[in-house]
Structures are given as C-alpha cells and as structure tokens.
C-alpha cells in the first residue's frame, strides 16, 4: 500500500499550495484527472522523489520513504514522451532499468528479453527504439517499468499521443500488469474514458486537493 499523509508542497510563495492525501493498494489502478496546471505532475513528482514535500509523509507498506532519493524508492515512472534512449536498441532500453551499465549479455539481458516477450515486442529486440511506432515505444517504456522491482508504477499521460486503437491496447496491457504483477498503478489522464475503462478508483485534482469521483 502506498500512502500519502497530508503531503504538502508549494512551488513558490505566490502560488497556491498543494495538500495530498491518498492511499493506493497493490494490484489496483488509480486514475488522477484535472485541468492543465492543476498539479497532476507535481503529485507524481512528489511520489517519485523528484520534488520533496514541505510537510507530510509518504509510506510504502508502513515504511516511510519521504526522504529517499528517486532511485531508492519503490517507484518507476512512464512519461508521456522522452522515456527512451533513442540511439539505443529495445533490449538496452529495458535492461538499463536493472543494470545502468547496460550489459550486452547475461542474466539481466535474459530477463529483459522475457519482459519484452510479455509485452509482445520479441521481434523488435535489436531495433533502435527511434524506429519503433509510438505505441511500441510506450510498450518498451512499460517493459522497463515492469523489469524494475518497484511496487508502484506512475503513468504520466503515457498514451495521450497514441491513436484510439493503440491506446485501447495499451490500456488493456496496463490492466493486465496491475492484475498479474500486483503493482500499485497511478495514472494521470485527461480522458475520463481511460479512467472508466481500467481504473479502480478515480480522483479529480482541483484547488490543490484530490477529490474522489464516483466511477
């Protein structure tokens, strides 16, 4: 269980403060919606450790993670764009998730291949990711999120640039990941239909706070 207990943050003294309370269980998908600038990315940055709260606490299974560096947190993020090292091939982009030295062989590579197979990208292992389609690129990013042992996956509008059909496939894949790998998934989305399609819970972010929405 990921738990945010009165996590507060303010970008500058003249901007409105945020105050977040949230609990997300393993194996569930929580959708966050809100207008541009409402603080969705700030929330994800606080969970990922790119920003530190001015007050409040973050817990993962009752262990406090508020002060941990991003790479020490049980969290991995899939962004809307710029997720991948475009000059490297697909396997390298996945294997870097568990070994930053990017080995070309060994157990880490074997594991990356397994994960790529699970997201249907076996055929593209040796391809430069810049040659893949938008949907395939996001699947590589998801594969990297999967190979990491992180309990929490943050999805920062990762499918907003994809066409309807690819987007639908990707949402099914995310649902499958949540069910099979017992990860806690938080997905920021602009589209209420995405939320309806796969989310277990839905919050709307307005005036610096998360407001539960009926499904």
């Amino acid at each position: 269980m990921l738990h945010l207990d009165a996590v507060c943050f303010q970008h500058t003294p003249d901007t409105d403060p945020y105050r977040f309370n949230l609990s997300v269980a393993r194996g569930t998908i929580t959708a966050i919606s809100g207008r541009s600038g409402s603080g969705k990315s700030t929330l994800l940055d606080l969970i990922a450790g790119f920003l530190l709260p001015s007050s409040g606490h973050l817990y993962w299974h009752d262990q406090e993670i508020t002060a941990l560096a991003p790479d020490k947190r049980p969290v991995t993020t899939v962004f809307q764009k710029n997720n991948l090292f475009e000059h490297r091939n697909t396997v390298d982009n996945v294997v870097v998730g568990i070994d930053p030295s990017v080995p070309s062989a060994g157990p880490a590579v074997a594991r990356a291949r397994e994960i790529l197979a699970s997201v249907g990208l076996s055929k593209f292992e040796k391809q430069r990711v810049s040659n893949l389609s938008g949907g395939q690129q996001q699947r590589v990013a998801l594969a990297r999120a999967l190979i990491r042992a992180s309990g929490v996956i943050l999805l920062d509008e990762p499918f907003s640039a994809l066409d309807t059909e690819t987007r639908s496939h990707m949402l099914s894949l995310v649902r499958q990941i949540a069910d099979q790998s017992s990860r806690a998934i938080i997905m920021v989305t602009h589209d209420i239909n995405d939320s309806k399609a796969i989310a277990d819970e839905h919050f709307h972010l307005a005036h610096g706070e998360l407001q539960p929405q009926a499904r």
Binding site: A69, P70, F85, P100
Partner: peptide, 24 residues
Amino acid sequence: SQQKKLARSLGLNTWQRFKLIEFP
C-alpha cells in the same frame, strides 16, 4: 526534463548519464 528524471529514477551515475543521455 523527463530524461533528467529518468536518469535520477534509474540511479544512473554521472558517467552513465553522460554516455546514455548527454553525449547523444
């Protein structure tokens, strides 16, 4: 900015960041 966040999230050291993100 996403690439910088990615580097931090993956725990890349200075040389790995330069090799994987900055030099390209």
